[in-house]
C-alpha cells in the first residue's frame, strides 16, 4: 500500500500557473507592504510599540477613528440596504441615474469630496448655515468626520446587497403572505436573513474603508488633538517628525484592531449563514 500523497493533484488543469500568478500579485500588492510594516514594528519591539500607543492622545485618536467608522458603517448598513432595495424593486424616473450616482464616492478623489463637504457644511456653507441657526456645528466637529465617512463608505453596502435583492424570488414573499405572515414578519423573518450575509460583507468593507480614510476627513475634521484628530493623521504627524518607528507602531495598532473587528464580523457572518442554512 502506498502512502497517500501530501497534495492531491486537482483534476482541474492550470492550478499551478494560476496559483503562482495569484500568489505573486498578492505578495507584491498586499503581503509585502504589510510585511514591511510588521518588520518595522518588530525592529521597534513590542515595548516600544506599547509606549507609543499607550498615550492619551493616541488612544483618543484610535477610539475616535474606530468609533466613528463603526457608526458610519452601521449607518451605511441600514441606508445602503434600503437604497439597494429601492433601486432594485421599484421602477421610477431617474432610477438609472441614481444607480450610477451610487458609485460616485468611488470615482471622486477623496480630497475633492472632503473639500466639497466642508464647503457645504461649514458654518458659512449652504447647509452649514442652516444647521448653525439651530446651534448645530457639523463641519469641524465629529459630525463632519461621520459625514465624510458615510460618504466614502456608501457604495459598499449598496453594491453588495443589490445583486442579492435581484436574486430573491417573489414567490417566497407571496408564500409568506399566503401563510398568513404580516409585512413586518415577512421582512424580518424572510427578507432580512437572506440579505444579511451580503449586507455584512458590505458593512465590513465600509468599516475597513472608513478606518483608513484620510483624504476627505482631513479637510472637514478640524484636527484638534483629543477632539477631532483621527488616527491616520497621527501617523502622518509622526512621519513629519521623521519618526518612522512611532508611525509604524500606530499603524500596527490600527491593523490589529481592524483585524479583530473584521474577525468578529466574519464570525457573525458564518453564524448568520448557518442560521439560514445555505450560502
Amino acid at each position: 500500500m502506498t502512502a497517500r500523497p501530501l497534495f492531491q493533484r486537482s483534476p482541474m488543469p492550470g492550478f499551478g500557473l494560476s496559483m503562482g500568478v495569484t500568489l505573486t500579485m498578492l505578495s507584491l500588492v498586499v503581503l509585502l507592504p504589510i510585511g514591511a510594516l510588521l518588520m518595522k514594528g518588530a525592529a521597534f519591539g513590542p515595548a516600544g510599540i506599547w509606549d507609543t500607543v499607550n498615550r492619551p492622545r493616541v488612544w483618543a485618536a484610535l477610539f475616535l477613528s474606530f468609533r466613528l467608522s463603526l457608526f458610519a458603517a452601521l449607518f451605511n448598513l441600514v441606508f445602503g440596504t434600503l437604497l439597494a432595495w429601492v433601486l432594485v424593486r421599484y421602477r421610477f424616473p431617474g432610477r438609472r441615474l441614481l444607480d450610477a450616482a451610487v458609485d460616485l464616492p468611488f470615482a471622486l478623489p477623496t480630497a475633492v469630496a472632503g473639500i466639497a463637504l466642508t464647503a457645504l457644511y461649514a458654518p458659512n456653507g449652504a447647509f452649514g448655515s442652516l444647521a448653525k441657526e439651530i446651534g448645530w456645528k457639523i463641519a469641524y466637529s465629529q459630525w463632519g468626520i461621520f459625514l465624510a465617512l458615510v460618504f466614502v463608505g456608501l457604495p459598499f453596502v449598496t453594491r453588495t446587497v443589490q445583486p442579492v435583492v435581484e436574486e430573491i424570488d417573489r414567490e417566497v414573499e407571496e408564500a409568506s403572505a399566503t401563510l398568513g405572515a404580516g409585512r413586518l414578519t415577512t421582512i424580518t423573518r424572510i427578507i432580512l436573513p437572506m440579505l444579511a450575509p451580503a449586507a455584512l460583507t458590505g458593512f465590513a468593507l465600509a468599516l475597513a474603508r472608513a478606518v483608513g480614510e484620510y483624504g476627505s476627513v482631513i479637510f472637514i475634521a478640524g484636527n484638534i488633538p483629543l477632539v477631532t484628530e483621527i488616527a491616520p493623521l497621527l501617523i502622518v504627524i509622526q512621519l513629519e517628525e521623521f519618526n518612522y518607528d512611532a508611525a509604524a507602531a500606530i499603524g500596527i495598532a490600527m491593523l490589529l484592531i481592524s483585524f479583530a473587528m473584521l474577525l468578529v464580523i466574519n464570525l457573525i457572518q458564518i453564524w448568520s449563514r448557518r442560521r439560514i442554512g445555505h450560502v
Binding site: 479637510f219 484636527n223 484638534i224
Partner: peptide, 21 residues
C-alpha cells in the same frame, strides 16, 4: 483658541478666507 488645526499653511488660509472660520 484654535478651532481648526489644518495640516498646511494653504489649508489654514482656505479655512479662514473661504470657510469664514
Amino acid at each position: 483658541h484654535v478651532p481648526v488645526l489644518d495640516s498646511g499653511a494653504r489649508g489654514a488660509t482656505t479655512t479662514f478666507a473661504q470657510r469664514g472660520i
